[in-house]
Amino acid sequence: MNPNHSPEGFKARYFPYFMAAFFMVCLSIGCAVSLASATYFAGYADRSDYSTFSLLVLAVLVFIGHFLMVRGRRWAVWIIAFLYCASLITVVSTYSFQPHRGVYMLGLLFPLIGLLLLNSTGHRQMRESLAKLHHERRQKRQHH
């Protein structure tokens, strides 16, 4: 991060991008798990257990991806992009089961908006600034 910029200015500029992408991945995963549960696990008595376990595992992946991205790891955005793509593929694969139209449309919309956000100029600038900050911190640790 440029020393001329304050942390408050950084947060004010990039926090909306970060939170919008975060909520889009959460909503994408929620729709995908909901549709997969209603279609692929419809006959199972334990389908709520499968859904809960899936959501917990995916929540950990979302946390790890965002935590590493905030810590300046450039490659961590691929974890988040993978989650968007996996959600999108899961939702599209339920089409032949004639899922609920509203959930299906939202399940398509959320990952596409999320991928668009990841590719936006603001999100790219945020990741670049976080990577520069990570590089500066690593150089300071090496000199001390």
Rank of each mutant, 00 (worst) to 15 (best):
Pro3Trp: 11
His5Asp: 06
Ser6Gly: 08
Ser6Leu: 14
Ala12Gly: 09
Tyr14Arg: 05
Phe18Cys: 06
Phe18Leu: 15
Met19Tyr: 08
Phe22Lys: 09
Phe23Asp: 09
Cys26Phe: 13
Gly30Pro: 01
Cys31Tyr: 09
Ala32Asn: 03
Leu35Cys: 04
Ala36Met: 10
Ser37Ala: 10
Ser37Val: 04
Thr39Met: 08
Tyr40Gln: 14
Phe41Thr: 06
Ser48Gly: 01
Ser54Asp: 10
Ala59Arg: 07
Ala59Thr: 15
Ile64Asp: 12
Gly65Ile: 07
His66Gln: 04
Phe67Lys: 14
Met69Phe: 04
Arg73Glu: 04
Arg74Gly: 09
Trp75Leu: 07
Ile80Val: 15
Ala81Pro: 00
Ala86Arg: 01
Ser87Gly: 13
Leu88Asn: 02
Ile89Asn: 00
Val91Asp: 01
Val92Asn: 00
Val92Ala: 13
Tyr95Thr: 06
Ser96Pro: 00
Ser96His: 10
Phe97Gln: 08
Arg101Ile: 10
Arg101Glu: 08
Leu108Ser: 02
Leu108Glu: 01
Phe110Ile: 04
Pro111Ala: 03
Leu116Ile: 00
Leu118Met: 11
Asn119Cys: 08
Asn119Asp: 08
Thr121Gln: 10
Gln125Trp: 02
Ala131Leu: 02
Lys132Ile: 09
Leu133Ile: 05
His134Val: 00
Arg137Gln: 15
Arg141Phe: 12
Arg141Asn: 14
